[in-house]
């Protein structure tokens, strides 16, 4: 059953039980699809020793960058940390205050997809022969080389969708969809912030992108 939270402070209520040491999958590609209000609530909540999974490592001084700045994130798993506006991360990394695991973007998505789909591990052709495959098991299958990749599971996923119904079915908007649907499947508890909640039955079932089974809490902002 999905909880729909819509009162003042709903974002804070939604993340109130995130414990220290949690792995948190955070949606978004740059600013598109980044659940800023949920990230801000997680920052206020103050859980420490977090592992964060996101495509990037924060932009500017808001959202994920502001969370990193608190020093509460022990490790970030991402594909593309270095950007023109990633100064918060750059400073933490260069002073040894954050751990970084760089993962090719497709492997990042597929490792979460595997977690959500109950796959124990998978062989990917991405990264073979590169420094990012060092120390990993390799196998040649039908003449092509692959490297073994393990799932990334989250304790929590914080994602941004556009519209939810009261069951928790989600519809996204344009390229803000990005990692949302995959992360929703890969976490024990998935929290989606949305700008619109409609009555159950108001979404065309043919158009639902994330079915309600993957969504635990909806926060209306």
């Amino acid at each position: 059953m999905t909880d729909v939270l819509e009162a003042d402070g709903a974002a804070d209520e939604a993340v109130a039980d995130v414990p220290d040491g949690a792995t948190v999958l955070i949606g978004g590609f740059g600013a598109a699809g980044q659940p800023i209000e949920l990230i801000d609530a997680l920052r206020r909540h103050g859980a420490t020793d977090l592992t964060v999974v996101n495509n990037n490592a924060g932009n500017g001084d808001t959202g994920l960058a502001a969370l990193l700045k608190t020093g509460h994130v022990r490790k970030i798993i991402c594909s593309f940390p270095r950007q023109s506006d990633s100064w918060v991360f750059d400073d933490l990394y260069r002073s040894g205050r954050i751990e970084l695991e760089v993962v090719p973007q497709g492997n990042l998505a597929e490792r979460m997809r595997a977690a959500g789909a109950g796959i124990g591990a998978f062989f990917s052709p991405t990264g073979v022969g590169t420094p990012l495959a060092e120390g990993k098991e390799e196998r040649t299958i039908e003449g092509r080389d692959y490297v073994l990749e393990y799932p990334i599971r989250g304790d929590y996923a914080l994602i941004k969708a556009h519209t939810a119904d009261r069951m928790g079915n989600l519809v996204y908007r344009k390229t803000a969809r990005n990692f949302g649907p995959v992360m929703a499947t890969a976490a024990t508890t998935t929290i989606a912030q949305v700008v619109d909640v409609v009555e159950t039955g108001a979404l065309d079932p043919e158009n639902v992108v994330t079915p309600s089974i993957f969504v635990d809490k909806v926060v209306l902002l």
Binding site: S79, P81, V102, P104, Q105, P125
Partner: peptide
């Protein structure tokens, strides 16, 4: 240098 790969490895082999 801070390593950042993005989608380059997936595109290269894909």
């Amino acid at each position: 240098a801070i390593p950042a790969v993005g989608g380059a490895m997936d595109l290269a082999i894909g």
